[in-house]
C-alpha cells in the first residue's frame, strides 16, 4: 500500500491503495464516485469509461500508479447539473433502458466529440463501437451523438 495523489473532477485526493488497484475501484470504493461502472474488468464493454487528460479511457484496467499527474474526469464531473450537450442530447432522445452502460457511453461520446465535432455516421459508429449496450439502445445513442454534435 502506498499513498497516491490523484486529481479527479478538479479535486485533489490522496488515496492509500495497492499500486495495481485499477482507477475504477479507487473511484467507486474509495472516493464514492459511483457513476463509473464495472462491466467486464478487461476493457471490453466500456461501462467504466472516464476521461484521462481529456481522452476516453477504460478505468477498469488502468492502475492507479499510472494516473498520477494526470487529470481524471468522471461522469460526475462532466457537468454540474447534467447539462453537458451530450447529456442533454441523451435526455432529448430518452436513450436509456436499464441505464447501466450510459455513463460510459456518454463519456466516450463527449471525448470523441471534442476531437471530432462534426462526425459522419460512420465515424460515430467507429467511436462508439467499444461500448456495449445490453438493452440495445444503439440507434438512440447514435442519434443523440448526432444531436450533441449539432448543438456543441
Amino acid at each position: 500500500m502506498s499513498a497516491f495523489l490523484i486529481e479527479v473532477n478538479g479535486q485533489k485526493y490522496s488515496v492509500d491503495v495497492d499500486e495495481d488497484t485499477p482507477l475504477l475501484w479507487v473511484l467507486r470504493d474509495h472516493l464514492s464516485l459511483l457513476g463509473t461502472k464495472y462491466g467486464c474488468g478487461i476493457a471490453q464493454c466500456g461501462a467504466c469509461t472516464i476521461h484521462l487528460d481529456g481522452n476516453a479511457t477504460r478505468s477498469c484496467i488502468l492502475p492507479i500508479s499510472q494516473v498520477q499527474d494526470k487529470k481524471v474526469t468522471t461522469i460526475e464531473g462532466l457537468s454540474k447539473n447534467g447539462d453537458h450537450p451530450v447529456q442533454k442530447a441523451w435526455k432529448e432522445m430518452d436513450v436509456p433502458q436499464c441505464g447501466y452502460c450510459q455513463a460510459g457511453q456518454i463519456m466516450t461520446a463527449s471525448a470523441f466529440l471534442k476531437q471530432n465535432s462534426k462526425p459522419s455516421d460512420e465515424e460515430i459508429e467507429d467511436a462508439m463501437h467499444g461500448n456495449i449496450c445490453r438493452c440495445g439502445t444503439y440507434s438512440r445513442i447514435k442519434k443523440a451523438v448526432k444531436i450533441a454534435s449539432n448543438n456543441s
Binding site: 464516485l33 460526475e76 435526455k91
Partner: peptide, 23 residues
C-alpha cells in the same frame, strides 16, 4: 403520451441508482 424515463436525469449524471452502487 410520450413521457421520459423518470430516472433519466439520474442515469445521465451517473447517480448511484443500481444495486452495485449501494454503500
Amino acid at each position: 403520451t410520450d413521457k421520459f424515463n423518470v430516472d433519466l436525469n439520474g442515469i445521465v449524471q451517473g447517480k448511484p441508482l443500481f444495486g452495485i452502487d449501494y454503500k
